[in-house]
């Protein structure tokens, strides 16, 4: 009777904890959710790209704009009377925030690793550091928060340079796209602190590996979306 030889160690006929694939239900649900999220960010990014260069007024991502005449140029405009908008995007600063977010994914991997190997004896100082799930969860959360701080700084300075949500198509599509990503990072940070709180309260062990794994999956996804945004919005002119 080969048909009953399935993954999962629990007797399938009892019905409990048995799954067809042997994977946790939540994991499959999360994968489906992330598939849906791909379409969400895909649509946001596609709209940003199709509106690129279509703004009729105001600051632009990579070009100088003379406010009075709406002349657009790849270099500073010499004879512009009155306000001249400089290119809005600050690539060095965003490169730093991108690095921070990528490092948070590393910390996330280490958190998961620490939880999985919680019961392995640790002898040296470095083994204890590497095995501390609290440290790495907090590290991931702090790096995520640092990214959000960069984003807050970025949004504030853009605002002062004259770019608002309602200024032009660039403002609308840029803030909506990056704002949605920032919202996802914020949700991930809350999730991280929740797991951290559980870790402090009762300690996470190998039995919780799936719980951390789910968060890691989400976190890496949000990270990958940022790589797409950074490349398509910031780096490509």
């Amino acid at each position: 009777m080969a048909t009953t030889a399935h993954a999962g160690t629990v007797d399938p006929h009892k019905g409990h904890h048995y799954t067809t694939t042997g994977l946790d239900n939540r994991k499959i649900g999360l994968w489906a959710f992330l598939g849906s999220e791909c379409m969400l960010f895909g649509t946001l990014i596609a709209t940003y790209l199709s509106y690129k260069g279509k703004s009729v007024a105001g600051p632009r991502p990579h070009e100088w704009v003379c406010a009075a005449t709406n002349v657009v140029s790849d270099s500073p405009i010499a004879n512009c009377v009155g306000q001249m908008f400089t290119p809005i995007l600050d690539i060095p600063v965003t490169s730093a925030s991108t690095f921070v977010l990528l490092m948070s994914s590393l910390a996330m991997v280490l958190s998961h690793n620490a939880v999985v190997h919680k019961n392995v004896p640790k002898n040296t100082f470095w083994e204890r550091v590497r095995g501390s799930s609290k440290l790495w969860l907090a590290m991931t959360a702090f790096l995520g928060m640092a990214f959000l701080a960069f984003q807050t700084y970025e949004f504030t300075s853009f605002y002062h340079e004259g770019l608002k949500l309602s200024t032009n198509l660039f403002g609308s599509s840029f803030f909506t796209l990056t704002g949605f990503h920032g919202g996802h990072v914020t949700f991930g940070v809350l999730w991280l602190w929740t797991l951290f709180a559980i870790d402090v309260k009762r300690g996470l062990g190998p039995d919780d590996a799936t719980n951390v794994d789910l968060l890691a999956l989400y976190w890496h996804f949000v990270d990958v979306v940022w790589i797409a945004i950074f490349t398509l919005v910031y780096l490509i002119k």
């Binding site: 709209t47 509106y51 279509k54 703004s55 009729v56 007024a57 949500l165 309602s166 032009n168 198509l169 403002g171 609308s172 599509s173 909506t176």
Partner: peptide
């Protein structure tokens, strides 16, 4: 925002 504002391009 101006996503569907034709005057804004």
């Amino acid at each position: 925002t101006q996503f569907y504002a034709i005057a804004a391009g």
